[in-house]
């Protein structure tokens, strides 16, 4: 029976691995600190949910989730990329909050803080992914696909251009690279996969509300990326594994019940700190990341 608990954790790991890889693309590979990533997660979740509950088939809702998130990735980056470094980060933070505010207040569409319960499980070709192990198969497949797609894209010309932009934007421009367009593409691509993760999340938890998509969520994902190592897809997966699993052993240590909540938080924070101090570049980090700080 414990397999249910393990499968549950594995499913969450898959969802967050996709989120971490997609954020890594924007922040690690393309060098843009994105503090609004949870918004793409949310857009994917709500798009998929609303479409399925309106009668559309899951595969359509799933792809639409990616598409909507990518669209918003473009809409955000076009104005935001006029800003540099810290200011860009703040713009993304603002975007995240605006999206959450819309989800909270557009009650006719989203039911606002009441959230949307009863989200159906995914159905493909008449088969329902209801059982835990089947859902894991679905989530795992999407995660693996994400990894290989991103790896291919980054191994090709796009990846090289991103590397160049990270090192020097003016030199990249002098080589004929439309830096702004490349960054918009990176944003859209990262947002797109975060949208897929949102769809997987919504149909798994079967209830979504804006409280699941706060800045704290983005910071958790950012932590996974940092811990795993910027510019390493494998690192993002490792980061997701570690941060999802880290609080779990603490449930099994017999802590005095009066302090159980607080003690677990303290131990969790302590372990996190230890990990970061031991491997400041992240577990799979190749080099010290530069580029987040304002240019010039």
């Amino acid at each position: 029976m414990i397999e249910a608990y393990i499968l549950h954790l594995l499913i969450l790991i898959c969802i967050y691995a996709i989120l971490a890889m997609s954020l890594n693309l924007i922040t690690g590979y393309a060098g843009m600190l994105n503090l609004g990533h949870a918004a793409f997660f949310a857009i994917g979740a709500y798009t998929s949910t609303l479409l399925v509950m309106a009668g559309f088939p899951f595969w359509f809702a799933f792809l639409a989730a990616a598409g909507m998130a990518a669209l918003f990735g473009v809409l955000l980056s076009i104005p935001a990329l006029r800003l540099r470094g810290d200011f860009l980060a703040i713009a993304t933070l603002g975007f995240g909050e605006i999206i959450r505010s819309i989800l909270l207040n557009w009650t006719e569409l989203t039911r606002g803080p009441l959230g949307i319960p009863g989200i159906p499980k995914p159905e493909l070709f008449g088969f329902e992914f209801g059982a835990l192990h089947w859902y894991f198969v679905l989530a795992f497949a999407v995660t693996v696909a994400t990894y290989f797609i991103l790896r291919k894209i980054l191994a090709g010309n796009f990846g090289i251009v991103l590397k160049a932009i990270r090192e020097s934007e003016p030199v990249s421009e002098s080589l004929g690279k439309n830096v702004k367009l490349v960054k918009i593409q990176a944003f859209a691509l990262g947002a797109c996969f975060a949208g897929l993760a949102g769809s997987l999340f919504a149909h798994y938890i079967t209830f979504i509300d804006p409280s699941s998509f706060t800045l704290a969520e983005t910071i958790l994902i950012l932590l996974m990326v940092t811990l795993g190592g910027m510019s390493s897809l494998k690192g993002s997966i490792a980061g997701a594994i570690i941060l999802i699993l880290l609080p779990e052993p603490l449930r099994f240590i017999g802590l005095p019940s009066a302090m159980v909540g607080q003690l677990r938080q303290i131990i969790y924070a302590g372990l996190l700190l230890a990990l970061i101090l031991k491997r400041p570049k992240g577990l799979f980090g190749e080099k010290w990341f530069k580029g987040i700080v304002s240019e010039g």
Partner: peptide, 17 residues
Amino acid sequence: TGGIFNNMTVLENLLVA
């Protein structure tokens, strides 16, 4: 100064061009 991408290989510096 600074025309080369230091953290990329020689080959990559050409391929980006």
